[in-house]
Write a protein that binds this DNA or RNA. Sequence first.
DNA 1: GTCGTTGCAAAGCGTTTGCAGCCTA
DNA 2: TAGGCTGCAAACGCTTTGCAACGAC
Lengths: 134, 134
Amino acid sequence: MGMERNTIQRRAVQRTIQEADRPLSPEEILAEGKRYCPTLGIATVYRTVKEFLADGWISPVRLPGDAARYEIAGKTHHHYFYCHRCARTSEVRGCPDGLHRLTPSGFKLEDHEVVLYGTCASCVREVKEGRKRK
Amino acid sequence: MGMERNTIQRRAVQRTIQEADRPLSPEEILAEGKRYCPTLGIATVYRTVKEFLADGWISPVRLPGDAARYEIAGKTHHHYFYCHRCARTSEVRGCPDGLHRLTPSGFKLEDHEVVLYGTCASCVREVKEGRKRK
DNA sequence: GTCGTTGCAAAGCGTTTGCAGCCTA
DNA sequence: TAGGCTGCAAACGCTTTGCAACGAC
């Protein structure tokens, strides 16, 4: 694989992505990665992510209209829930039904992407707390 | 509605979006709009699009990894089929079932996006033709 | 004539790249 | 020690904003 030198920075990025339970944006990788390497820079994050992508070790998660996020490759098929309040992306298991029914006749369906939008559990909780205090 | 003055520029943007048979990016709106107003500037396009969005006249089309595009609002709720062969985006009516079933417990589902990927009817036909000739 | 609107240019913002110095092997 | 790797800062492309001039009403 492309990694020729095993540096603190690369281990930090690798570990960060590995330990995350959701796809991370470069900025999120930087913030978390600094816990393992305080001098970590954003340029290195971008360069390392690019390398890991080329290696096939991670795969890009592209939500409509949002910056790319990255997660370990080879996970089982899944989709995403995007919280518009905290901008975090959670993983969603399973697929909706009837995708083939939607496909126009004559078209060949090969893949699909589903993104759910709304408020995540912790934000729902915070909103409720906020209302109580008023 | 927000439009207080009926300027050439706004009419140009409005007409461009109205006459398009597909969602347009700001850059595409600028290029087309210049046919109706040669002095049209990109800043005005962004400002006008923002206004139209606030007015509810147009709605954003968000495809994964792609820049935002805009189309006339008020169409019935729909999704998109992206053909990876000709890179065209078709409209798909209806929604899959069981979206709520996918939503993690405690989360509040407010919206969703579905993108189908595959081969469109005319590309399916072309591929078949190609095979026959062999 | 007023004042909302425009076009330019500059500023933001996220991402990429050039480069001198650092550090892994 | 060599040269890949890093961090800084500048460059980039797209979008937003400040401002003086313009023009719809």
